[in-house]
Design a protein around this nucleic acid. Structure first.
Lengths: 356, 356
DNA sequence: AACTTTCTGATTTACGTACATCAAAAAATC
DNA sequence: GATTTTTTGATGTACGTAAATCAGAAAGTT
């Protein structure tokens, strides 16, 4: 059986109260006594029963997630994951809530952060950041009020946030470029890039990585000027249609933002162009299956949500974060390793695999 | 605040004991009363505090993991993950232990299963199966004794095991074939397959998927007869060296088993051949970085261990398993999305990402 | 009506930890 | 040596649930 505080007390020859003082480092213990207790802890290999401890503490961690509103399927999947995690977060004594704000609206986001920070029972904030000074200021205010803040999916390093939960977008772009280059092989023709907006940090990062990888390929290849679809399916569709008309020898398209529904519609079944997109959603999944999209790079929203919750709790408790453990992986999906669509049990997400 | 059993009792107008009887469905409750209590549970949205319940139950689940001994880096990584999970499994009231048996030794594996089942405090067994009747018989015996059994990594469906924790190896082979075909494009030359042994189920499955995917490619390509390296680096090295000498126009190699150290050594820095291998280990990681290996398909040992533990606990409690949630994903790694090597904190694995 | 059987209530103990209180002992200070 | 300060012990309550006991009420059976 696992040793308990009682065992430590007995072994160290002290009382339970003293053990408690050492464990939760409360004052009033002599150095020698503390050493004795710590020796006993080490000797017995004692580990605190977190479940019992949390039960006794009765503490809960109300965490607020702020995500952009709108039709962006990835964001809706993210929201679904938050709600899903919220329903199963009882054991971790964590309470998750979701706030949506208009996409790309820095003022609204800043206001939402301020509101969350103003609430007396907010233990932490996770926000999909918009790259703007007022957002950075709001995050700084929250942190000054003692509330930990993490950025989610899209970073804002200048804000002084406690942590960023998301993928390395430069690496993601490099991965896309490498795959594009290998898939195309010696085939001639230029490559196009469809982004949401160059004002968004993660899109800029992905482009940078993609260009670097393309440049490093043995075969030089022309990359056309970036198209900005505003993450909007209708705009994207128009842009891609124009591109196809103007560039008959187009070899590939890298879609580094959202709005892939429009991209797929514009391609209307053409599988001769090598297409690489981001985020596994209903649109991209279907296009992978039909061969219109060749590869999808994905960040697992479920992992991100759980990582954000873990980090915020650790910060709230003043505990260190194991960075290596919180790294979000860049998943590559092709048709053959596509996970089966989930049976839509209780979440409305894109049907991603949910690990643990 | 979350509702507790007391709230339910009050709301339903019954005593705490009755609520307890309903919750843990013990006998001695009239149908009408039960309905009242269940209505109160639904109305208040009560969810059992698992931490408190486990604390009260005091029950622990001693689970035995049986894995092959030897130098196979994936298996050693698996073992490291089990030990790692064991150190952090306190919260789940689970106790993990590892037993190693000689690789491919059916008799030894069967004996280990019998021994684990004979122990009075074994709540479940997870075993990397060898495809042999005596193993199937041992698993059947354990299950008759009321001990749940899951197969890990390599399945043995005929044994009647409760569950299989591992990837879809046919799909893995198809993925490899598809990537190989796309990476090679129009480049001519035959492709070789290096397996461990055709007597092992997962290797047969991978080969099947690979051949199917290659056959489905637009460009027909010759696949040379399978080489069997016994998962042994020295044997593999010899076989590959011979292959290279005999086949100057070789275009690609699919290594579907272990022993990749020998493969890499035989290739000695050649990056003109397209190589796809399985499992991210120190060997394959290094080869990915130098360009000798082009892609690695991976099954996350950490996920598998945690999934196995969850499934065994559920089975031990007679609870249903959410199959969709326990599916193990096939990860694709190329140089650009390689996760950074872990800082070897306390595990000796291959430095894989550890999610949650 | 007396009886058995089945249900329900009230109460208690336990799980392992956190946290508070008060008294007692030990150490340090004057 | 008397006093203050610091350290330690003893004890109790709480968290939310599980599980057991025993008494009492309700239902069903003769």
């Amino acid at each position: 059986m696992r040793p308990t505080v009682h065992d430590i007390a007995e072994r160290a020859g002290v009382s339970l109260a003293t053990v408690d003082r050492v464990l939760n480092d409360r004052p009033g213990v002599r150095a020698v006594t503390r050493a004795k207790v710590e020796a006993a802890i080490a000797a017995l290999g004692y580990v605190r029963d977190v479940a019992a401890a949390n039960l006794a503490k009765g503490r809960v961690y109300p965490l607020v997630f702020i995500v952009p509103a709108g039709e962006n399927p990835f964001m809706r999947g993210l929201e679904a994951e938050i709600r899903h995690a919220g329903r199963h977060s009882a054991a971790e004594r964590t309470r998750l809530s979701v706030v949506t704000v208009p996409a790309f609206d820095a003022a609204a986001l800043a206001a939402a952060i301020d509101a969350a920070a103003a609430s007396d029972d907010t233990a932490g904030i996770a926000a999909v950041a918009v790259d703007a000074p007022e957002v950075a200021a709001a995050i700084a205010r929250a942190r000054e009020a003692g509330i930990p803040v993490v950025t989610l999916v899209s970073d804002l390093a200048a804000s002084g946030r406690d942590h960023f939960v998301g993928v390395d977008n430069v690496a993601a772009g490099r991965t896309a470029g490498s795959l594009m280059g290998r898939f195309l092989g010696g085939r001639p023709g230029p490559v196009a890039v469809l982004a949401g907006s160059m004002r968004v940090r993660d899109h800029r990062d992905r482009l940078e990585g993609f260009l670097a990888a393309m440049a490093a390929m043995p075969v030089a290849r022309q990359v056309l000027p970036v198209l900005e679809g505003q993450d909007d399916p209708a705009v994207s569709r128009r842009l891609i249609a124009g591109l196809l008309a103007a560039t008959p020898d187009l070899a590939g398209i890298y879609s580094l933002g959202a709005g892939n529904g429009g991209l797929v519609a514009a391609l209307s079944g053409r599988s001769d162009i090598c297409v690489i997109a981001h985020e596994l959603t209903a649109d991209t999944r279907a296009a992978l299956e039909t061969g219109v999209i060749d590869a999808v790079l994905n960040q697992d929203a479920g992992h991100e949500v759980r990582s954000a919750a873990r980090v915020l709790r650790a910060k709230a408790d003043g505990l260190p974060v194991v960075a290596a453990q919180e790294r979000i992986r860049i998943d590559i999906f092709i048709r053959e390793n596509l996970p089966p669509a989930a049976e839509e049990d209780e979440r409305s997400g894109a049907g991603l695999y949910q690990g643990d």
